[in-house]
């Protein structure tokens, strides 16, 4: 993603001075201590950092799964500060898609049913053709009727990505998506992210420990002790 695009496209996620502190006994843990960033459509952003640097906390805040103690967060131009849980659900629905380290597919549902699950919550009709098209995009079209236990780790993660895409999300948020995958599958997942960014103009935010994979993103943000210590574009 170029600097020109960055200046032309309005951010879909805009965070200013996000803070999240936890109390552990008498000690205050500053998980995030004033993070500001913008995420735009059509860019892939890696968030790197060691354990405890605040990656997951930042992802949770950007996902509207948690609320910041201080700071301003705009999702698709809407301020989410002070919203209650049901309102946050509305913000998430149709805008944010999630991919987790442990896939979290429901074991009794087939691949296609897992992908279609968010539609049930959005009260949208299931379009099996669309499901198969999305599975085609993640190279799992021939696995639609399989159960998760019949898939490999890499395939399960691709199902999770398809699940995030079924609602036409504008932002894909992935927290350590390659944490449970081997190198080849990890690279395949990142390659898929790149393809989705270019083909569907998605914004992808991904946290990872893996510097090599993180380096495949358009922009790399490095966190340490709850602060952004580095932010640069891919060379």
């Amino acid at each position: 993603m170029s600097n020109n695009t960055e200046t032309m496209v309005a951010p879909i996620i805009s965070a200013r001075g996000l803070k999240k502190h936890y109390q552990r006994g008498i000690e205050t843990i500053k998980a995030l201590d004033g993070v500001s960033l913008d995420i735009r459509a059509g860019e892939m952003v890696s968030i790197l950092g060691p354990s405890g640097s605040g990656k997951t906390t930042l992802i949770n805040l950007l996902s509207c799964l948690d609320a910041p103690d201080a700071g301003e967060l705009l999702i698709a131009g809407r301020s989410v500060s002070g919203l209650v849980e049901e309102e946050l659900v509305n913000v998430r629905q149709g805008v944010l898609g999630f991919v987790f380290q442990k896939f979290h597919l429901l074991p009794t549902l087939t691949v296609a049913e897992n992908v279609e699950l968010p539609l049930m919550f959005l009260r949208r009709a299931v379009d099996r053709e669309k499901t198969l098209e999305i599975l085609r995009q993640v190279d799992l079209e021939n696995r639609a009727g399989h159960l998760p236990k019949e898939l490999s780790g890499g395939q399960m993660q691709r199902v999770a990505i398809a699940r995030a895409l079924i609602t036409d999300s504008k932002v894909l948020i992935a927290d350590e998506p390659t944490g449970n995958l081997d190198k080849a599958n990890g690279e395949a997942v990142f390659a898929l992210f790149r393809r989705l960014v270019s083909e569907k103009n998605l914004a992808v935010i991904v946290t990872t420990h893996n510097l090599a994979l993180g380096g495949l993103a358009d922009r790399i943000i490095t966190l340490e002790d709850g602060l952004v210590i580095d932010e640069h574009l891919r060379q």
């Binding site: 898609g97 968010p118 699940r163």
Partner: peptide, 8 residues
């Protein structure tokens, strides 16, 4: 997860 993907 269900809540994250849209369940109220």
């Amino acid at each position: 997860i269900m809540k994250a993907i849209g369940a109220s």
